[in-house]
Every structure is written in C-alpha cells, then in structure tokens.
C-alpha cells in the first residue's frame, strides 16, 4: 500500500497532464495537477527547513568539526526569514499608504533588498566566476591529442575559442572576400550552426525517446525504482 498509492497518483496525474496537451476539454485537469504540484512543493519547504535546522542544531550541540559554520548558516537563515516576513524597512504600497506592511518584501530600500543586493548578488556571482578557473584547468588536462578524434576536437576548440574573440579578426580578418568563409569568426559560427547542431539534434532525439520510454515505464507502473529499489510491496 505504501508504494501502491504513490504509483497510482503518478499514473493518474501523468495521464491527465499528457491528455491536456491534446484535448482542450482536459486542460483543466492538467492545470489543476500543475497547481497541486506547486502546493505540495511549497509544503515540502517546511520539511526542508526542518531538516536544515535539525542537522545543523545537532552539529552545534555535539560540537562537531566545523560547528561554527552551522551556527552561521542558522543565523543567516533565521535573519533572512525575519527580515523577509517582518518586511523590515519596506516602504508602504502607494495605493495603501496608510498600511505600513502593504509594500512588497523586496521593495527598494528594504532590508531584504539590501541583503539581496550586497549579500546574495556578490556571493553567487563569485561562485559563477569560479567556472572560468575550472574550465581552464579542465582544458589543460582533458584536451590531449591522443588519437584522430581528439585531434579533431582540439582543432575545433581552437577555432571556436579564437573565433569568438577579436583574436579571430586579427588572425584571419585579412582573408579576401572569396575566402571569407574561412575567417575564424565565420568558421566558428559554421561549426556551431552545422556540426554542433547536427550532433545536438541527434542527442536531443535520443533524449526525447529516452524521456518518452522512461515516462511510459512510470505511467504503466513498470518502473517503480523511483520509490526505492527492490520489492514491489
């Protein structure tokens, strides 16, 4: 029963979503299941927050290695929640100026917007910027001319890397018009639009079939391993 009910929920919701794409009369069911998912996902946040609090509090109380970080995590979590829910520093909505809490939590000038602007934006941008460093070390290690395929890959990498910058113009910009197709910037576009597109389409078709087969396995109840491996009780 523990696995039967989720399986039937998946089957009914899955078929409702599928049919709503083709039969306008069933659109309502598709939309309703979409909305139910949003509600369930919102409720799950409580479980997520509970897990976060439980694990970090346990770490602090046991004085595990790095418990200080847990304390910082919980403090930031509680502070952001307080600032957001309490609408600290939020100017009232122009339409309801008499009501101090009528403004949006992230309105300009609010504490929440300040945390976003001066806390979150720099931190996440820094994490994203790390990619440049990791790409460089991965390229240094992975691009080795081991065989013919690797040499082709390497040559393509050179063309695209140079063609996507001003270096391509400097190196091959002097090519006469009849050979303009060989200019690095044009070659890189050609590689992206033709070879890359052809390969990507093949992968996309394979993925689409894989998604269809996987969805069908779940909808027919053939694959239940998303509820755990082994046993069908």
């Amino acid at each position: 029963m523990r696995r039967l009910i989720p399986m039937w929920i998946a089957i009914i919701a899955g078929f409702a979503m599928l049919f709503s794409a083709f039969f306008p009369v069933t659109e309502f069911f598709g939309e309703t299941f979409g909305e139910i998912f949003s509600v369930v996902a919102a409720i799950a946040y409580v479980l997520g927050a509970g897990s976060l609090a439980k694990i970090n509090l346990a770490k602090i109380s046991r004085r595990d290695q790095g418990w200080g970080y847990s304390a910082i995590t919980l403090f930031c979590f509680a502070a952001t929640l307080f600032v957001g829910l309490g609408k600290i520093g939020v100017p009232p909505n122009a339409q309801f100026a008499a009501l101090p809490w009528s403004g949006e939590k992230n309105a300009e000038g609010s504490a929440f917007a300040w945390i976003y602007e001066y806390g979150l934006v720099p931190i996440t941008s820094t994490m994203f910027a790390l990619l440049a460093f990791y790409v460089a070390s991965a390229a240094f290690r992975a691009f080795r001319a081991k065989n013919l395929e690797a040499i082709l890959l390497l040559s393509t990498a050179f063309i695209v890397l140079l063609g996507r910058t001003f270096a391509g113009v400097v190196l091959t910009g002097w090519f006469p018009d009849w050979a303009s197709g060989l200019r690095l910037e044009n070659l890189s576009v050609y590689i992206m639009q033709v070879f890359n597109t052809a390969g990507n389409r093949a992968i996309i078709i394979g993925i689409a079939l894989g998604v269809t087969a996987t969805s069908l396995r779940i909808l027919l109840g053939v694959d239940r391993s998303w509820m755990g491996s082994g046993g069908n009780s």
Partner: peptide, 20 residues
C-alpha cells in the same frame, strides 16, 4: 537542492536498505 527531492530520495534509499 529541493525539499521534495530530499523526501523522494529518503523514500528510495530507505526502501533499498530495507530490501537489502
């Protein structure tokens, strides 16, 4: 990175440990 995935993963891992 999602609460719902945490719940689903717990169910899956628990069932696997049970079957093993």
């Amino acid at each position: 990175s999602r609460s719902l995935v945490m719940e689903a993963a717990r169910e899956a891992v628990q069932a696997s440990y049970l079957s093993a």
